[in-house]
Design a protein around this nucleic acid. Structure first.
Lengths: 215, 215
DNA sequence: TACATTATTATACGTTCGTATAATTCTTGA
DNA sequence: TCAAGAATTATACGAACGTATAATAATGTA
């Protein structure tokens, strides 16, 4: 006798796409890119494997969308911490640093995804564009805050100087992000942000943190 | 008529293994783990595909050996810069930092390999052991130099304090390493080391660099 | 020089991958 | 209520993967 066919209900294309993207990211974060097969992804999303090709032209396109979704979420989580424009630049910079070095931005999952995507980024032009746009967007935000902070302190950095400082500070953040995500148990809560504030203060040659007691 | 069989000459098992390891690392660095198939690896090594199973019990075992070889080379390149034990700790620390942030340690190839291996490291106990041993070996070396530097300056850090400082400094190095390898064109020669010296000086609350002019 | 040994090549096998196509079931509008 | 159409499932297909086995040729030794 013919096997009973699964029941199903229809849903928004957007909902289906989101479900597939989310499942792809979960699998990729947990066990790497080779675990994110079309069968595993659609299975984790509770769908049959044909859905990937129905909602995306190819698996590669799904992966591009997944990377973009992940990147947008990461940047939004970091940037949203710095938005009350009325606050002083130092406060906003502090919060941006802190948000960049605590979950969900700084997290084993984020590291795992970064590592899994990086080879695709290198090969696929569309993914590289997404990657560079996100990277530059964050760095520009950082550069703006640094320039504002220096101006608040009476200094007047030119564009090139601000850019140089932003690159250096961003490098420190990336490094600590990597470390914190790779070895989450090696640091106490807030320790990474504290290290970053010290290092960035040294780069900027001025204290970033208001008046926290030193040990 | 039967196809002509390839001619070959015999060679040391060790030589064959090295060739396979080297080919595996090249492919992995260039195009990621999924490019390092048994056919591609043996082909790149100029051998037939049976050689992998003849010289290693399984492909996974080859990958473990490849990771170990890569890690040993990386650590040796960094550590060898700090060996004249007669030099002052500050000089050796400077050189260790510099070596860690210039090729071949800090390099797109190294980043690519790190990203490619990280999921295997997480899953495979043998690889995780290799990974942690290498990480701790480097950090211990760093901690020793930091403690020596502080003692030279008249401070006397206890074990816990030295460990805390080493973790923080290592995080800065890792971060800059990542940044420099991911975006090699974003930094001028020596710029990363300069940033690291400033940041580590801030963490240690003492200058690490002798008397280099500031801009 | 002949022979045993084994490193090496060549081929085969079963599995899984991404993709393509066929078959079904849910939904909607007249 | 019922047929058209689209979303979804099910299945098929060729390629490539890791592994296993068979065939061959290079080498050391008597």
């Amino acid at each position: 006798m013919p096997a009973a066919r699964r029941h199903f209900t229809r849903d928004d294309p957007a909902t289906r796409q989101t479900a597939l993207i989310s499942a792809a990211l979960d699998l990729m974060a947990e066990d790497g890119p080779q675990a994110a097969t079309v069968r595993a992804i659609s299975g984790a999303a509770g769908l049959s494997q044909g859905m990937i090709r129905h909602h995306f032209r190819t698996k590669e396109e799904l992966m591009n969308a997944a990377y973009k979704a992940h990147m947008d979420a990461q940047i939004a989580a970091a940037e949203n911490s710095a938005i009350p424009v009325t606050d002083p630049a130092r406060t906003r910079l502090q919060r941006l640093i802190s948000a960049s070095l605590t979950p969900p931005v700084c997290d084993p999952r984020a590291i795992s995804l970064w590592a899994g995507f990086i080879h695709m980024i290198r090969r696929d032009p569309a993914m590289r564009a997404t990657h560079e746009a996100g990277y530059l967007r964050f760095r520009d935000r950082l550069q703006g805050l640094i320039a504002a902070l220096l101006r608040e302190a009476g200094r007047d950095p030119d564009e090139a100087e601000a850019r140089r400082l932003a690159i250096a500070c961003n490098a420190v953040l990336d490094g600590l992000w990597l470390e914190g995500g790779a070895l989450p148990d090696a640091f106490q809560s807030g320790e990474l942000a504290e290290i970053a504030l010290g290092a960035i203060g040294a780069i900027l040659e001025m204290p970033v943190v208001s008046e926290e007691a030193k040990p």
